[in-house]
Design a binder for these strands. Sequence first.
DNA 1: GCGGATTTGTACGTATGTATG
DNA 2: GCATACATACGTACAAATCCG
Lengths: 76, 76
Amino acid sequence: MVDEMSPVPFYVQLADALAKQIESGKLKPRQPLPSESTLQQEYGVARGTVRAAVRLLRERGLVVTFTGRGTFVAER
Amino acid sequence: MVDEMSPVPFYVQLADALAKQIESGKLKPRQPLPSESTLQQEYGVARGTVRAAVRLLRERGLVVTFTGRGTFVAER
DNA sequence: GCGGATTTGTACGTATGTATG
DNA sequence: GCATACATACGTACAAATCCG
């Protein structure tokens, strides 16, 4: 989940956790991330928080998002 | 439709309205509820709102849903 | 069996309101 | 005031299952 005690915002914590999985190869290029609702449950946060995290990953170029399909690990 | 002025969320209002029809016998066991698109139009809400209402009814055990067929009043 | 229409399932985009620190 | 976080509610798009001519 997420560290309530940390000063780091939830959405940044979540983005970092996902980035780590991508960089470690746990999530490979072209693979879909878990859906927003799945991440919501897994990390115990609201959808808006999940969306903020994914937005960060998009801005870092780590993922690409397609409406109605999902968010995928970017190809490098 | 739905009461815009009420503090009660639309999807809860809609779930309550449908629950009332079930409990009053207006909708009988094994009978299908109106489709999501019908409820959408009848109550003037978005599909996501209809689905949230039906989800509540499912959680209460009042209805059962089958993909591609519809949602039916539970037998009791 | 096929193709189109219907219905539910999933997923994202966006906006607004409330609450908290 | 501002950022964070959650909940509600609108919309669009596409997939999956079913139904029917």
